[in-house]
Amino acid sequence: MMSPSYSAPRPRPRGWTRLAAVAGLVLTLGLGGCASVYLVDSEVQSFARWSPPPAPAAPQWYLFDRLPSQNEGPAARAQTELEQLALQQLAPLGWRVAGTDDPAPTWRVQVQASTLRLPHAPWESPADAFGPGYRMGRLPSGQAFWMPGGMRIATPYYERRLSLLVRDARTGQVVYETQAAHDGRWNDSPEIWRAMLSAALRDFPQPPAGQRHIAIEVPR
């Protein structure tokens, strides 16, 4: 569950027009060509309450915590995949899942994620899925551009939220909380979650105060 103190990212202007969207596509095609990466931009907020301070130095050992609902069926498989992504992000920071030959875990880590699939972007009208659309053309030079024609098809839009908590394994006290939010049309779930986790753990374990905008490049 997202913390009440979390400020959701500001919605994009609803005054966007279809012409602006087409202009963005032209710019992407004209300047990027066959782009090898795309950006996953996240709004991040992190809170550190290490007790006692300062933040513990690496290496540190932890175990994952789960809610009962995350231990059965498809939810358990999805949670396992998410925890593996979190493990990969924490390992370079010197935080490791405790094994049988390791010291007793000092921390418990809980990671949660949710996705809301919308039929179209918040600033678009359902009617945009009908009527004249746009099709690709090419100049004599070979450069691609978009022009009116064809039928526009509504493109789904995704709102993703992610949180990661670190608790003291002995007392259960939350000593670190970080949250990331990303909205967009990309649906490459594992890579997007990996990028959001990378953004959420930026500057761990001593993050700056306030909300931050962090963009991560993801290979296509």
Rank of each mutant, 00 (worst) to 15 (best):
D188S: 07
A113L: 06
P92R: 04
S189W: 14
S198D: 10
A181M: 07
I216Y: 03
L197F: 08
G210V: 03
H182T: 04
E83Q: 15
W186K: 06
G149Y: 04
P208E: 11
P105C: 03
G131K: 05
M151W: 14
A199H: 03
T106E: 15
A181K: 04
P205G: 04
R160A: 10
L197T: 03
G150M: 07
Q84L: 14
D101Q: 11
Q211E: 09
P119K: 05
Y134G: 05
W95A: 00
V175W: 05
P122E: 09
P190H: 02
D128R: 11
M196V: 03
E81Q: 15
P126I: 05
P207I: 01
R135I: 08
Q84Y: 07
E177N: 08
A113K: 06
S141Y: 11
P205Y: 00
A127F: 09
P219K: 07
I153Y: 07
M136T: 14
A129H: 09
Q84R: 14
P92L: 02
A91E: 12
D128L: 10
L116M: 11
T106V: 12
A113R: 12
R161N: 10
T171I: 10
R220L: 14
A195T: 00
A180Q: 02
G210I: 02
A199I: 05
A127G: 09
E177I: 00
Y176D: 01
H213I: 10
G184H: 00
D203P: 05
L90A: 04
Q88T: 08
A181F: 13
D203H: 15
D183Q: 12
G210C: 03
V97A: 12
T155L: 13
G94A: 05
D102N: 12
S114T: 12
A86R: 00
G137V: 07
P126G: 07
S141W: 12
L201V: 04
E159S: 12
A98S: 14
T106P: 04
E191A: 15
G133Y: 07
Q89D: 08
W186F: 08
L82M: 09
V111M: 04
A127R: 12
R117K: 15
G133N: 03
D168K: 09
A113P: 02
T80N: 13
S141A: 15
A144R: 12
R194Q: 15
A98N: 03
A169H: 06
P219E: 10
V166F: 10
G142M: 08
M151Y: 10
V166C: 05
E83I: 06
D168A: 14
Q88L: 15
R194A: 14
L201F: 15
A199S: 09
S141D: 14
W193P: 00
R108G: 06
L116H: 11
Q89S: 14
E159H: 07
A127P: 00
P119R: 07
V109P: 00
F145M: 10
A209E: 11
V175S: 10
H213P: 01
R202V: 09
L118K: 10
Q88Y: 05
Y176S: 01
R108K: 13
